[in-house]
Amino acid sequence: MEFKTELSRLLNEFLETRPDLFLVDLKISATSDVTVILDGDNGVTLQDCLDASRAIEFNMDREIHDFSLQVMSSGLSEPLEYPRQFRKNIGREIEVMLNDSSEVEGELLSVDDEKVVLRLEYRRPKLVGKGKEDVVEEREILYTDIKKALVVIKF
């Protein structure tokens, strides 16, 4: 069986036993360096990474195909890509870069399979008269319009 196919099969078997976890990325370099990036509805623990690593490591024959394996969680600096990742960040501030090169930042209010809803707060010039006014609005953004989305880290 092809290396990548077997690796994917073992990883999927592990993920079937852990429905709270999901695959974000699987990378295999030309030199067989394998990187598995996981995320979870309730986060990913070190034990989760160890369990995934063992599910692969103990079922692959290094005599047939030698490889190195690294299993990690998707960090805060990693972009949000899947609805499940957005869903677990409801209530947090996120920064969204859109395909038209504009950016918006706001609180993630809701998520479905097609879009996210952000609460935006900003100041704009008054429509009538001088000065500025505070504006709070909800904005729906389709996943197809998102180039990149990141959780805003505040200290």
Results as ranks from 00 to 15, higher is better:
E2S: 13
F3R: 14
K4A: 14
L7Y: 11
L10F: 08
L10K: 03
F14Q: 01
E16C: 12
E16K: 13
R18C: 14
F22E: 05
V24S: 01
K27W: 12
A30M: 10
A30Y: 09
T31N: 14
T31C: 05
T31M: 15
T31G: 08
T35Y: 07
L38R: 03
G40W: 01
G43Y: 00
T45Y: 13
T45C: 14
T45H: 09
C49Q: 10
C49R: 09
C49T: 14
L50M: 07
A52W: 13
I56H: 02
I56T: 02
E57R: 03
F58V: 02
F58N: 09
N59K: 07
E63A: 11
I64D: 07
D66I: 05
D66E: 08
F67W: 11
L69Y: 13
Q70S: 06
V71Q: 03
S73V: 09
S74N: 01
S74M: 08
S77H: 04
E78T: 06
L80F: 07
L80H: 04
Y82W: 02
P83K: 02
R84C: 06
R87K: 13
K88Q: 11
K88T: 12
K88C: 11
K88Y: 05
N89V: 12
N89M: 13
I90G: 07
I90D: 03
R92K: 14
R92L: 10
R92V: 06
E93Y: 00
V96A: 05
V96Y: 03
M97R: 04
M97Q: 07
N99I: 14
D100H: 10
E103Y: 03
E105H: 01
E105C: 10
L108E: 01
D113N: 12
K115R: 15
K115A: 10
V116Q: 02
R119P: 00
E121W: 01
Y122T: 08
P125I: 09
K126N: 15
L127M: 08
V128S: 11
G129M: 06
K130P: 05
K130E: 14
K130V: 10
G131P: 07
G131W: 08
K132Y: 11
V135D: 03
V136K: 15
E138H: 06
R139W: 05
R139I: 10
R139V: 12
I141N: 02
L142P: 00
L142F: 13
Y143E: 02
Y143T: 05
Y143G: 05
D145C: 04
D145Y: 12
I146F: 06
I146K: 04
A149K: 10
A149P: 11
V151F: 00
V151Q: 01
V152M: 05
I153D: 02
I153E: 04
K154V: 11
